[in-house]
Amino acid sequence: MQKTLLELSDLSIKFGGLTAVNRLNLKINAGEAVGLIGPNGAGKTTAFNLIVGVHQPTVGKVIFDEEDITGLAPHVVCRKGIGRTFQVVKPFGKMTVLQNIMVGAFVNTSKKSEARLIATEIMEKMSLQGKRDYLAQNLTIPERKRLEMAKALATQPKLLLLDEVLAGLNQTEIEEAVQLIKTINRDGITILMIEHVLQATMAICSRIVVLDYGKKIAEGSPQEVTSNSEVIKAYLGDEYENADS
């Protein structure tokens, strides 16, 4: 049996009267790639923020690598082995690409030379070596997305949370990014990704979880999920529920 890396049990958070994430249960095995989809405002990013400790859950638990990490501060969660990217990318604009990645590498070493070594390796993997000495603020959008992933990877996580890293890319760039994410996954890093580009999500993920109004409404293989009537209803509205029949 596969080892469970991340387990969410009854994870919930209320902002005033709004329940943004409602009793979310989810198990992710080590080595898996799981997609998290759902309409805008379904609570996907909030779920990420609950996992990494940006928000404290009202109820529920986050178990990572057999350890309860519920409510730990973001920097502690990162050091436990969870890397995350931001939907709106957050490069350190006044630092070079290499320096940006080195910041992440410093999680596992205090030596500058070692950090540079780790960062250089990741920079090459993410095809950013040509931009090594460019300031992050001068990068294009696709480069910024790759840098965002590189920064998270530099912390050498066991689990990588990707928040819409494909949004805003064109078809070719998406295909390149998909290959990149597949390589990262094949190298042994478990992936949980929020994505609106369904085709790409299906290409990467073996399992997809669908959120709507903070609740999990479906879970399964890409085929199962896309033919699920609840999912179609959530995305397209009530009248499409029986469109197939």
């Binding site: 920097h75 990162c78 890397g83 490069p91 910041v103 999680v107 530099a154």
Partner: peptide, 13 residues
Amino acid sequence: EDEDAAAAMGINV
């Protein structure tokens, strides 16, 4: 440059 991104990269701000 960015406190949130720094914290997400393991920095105790």
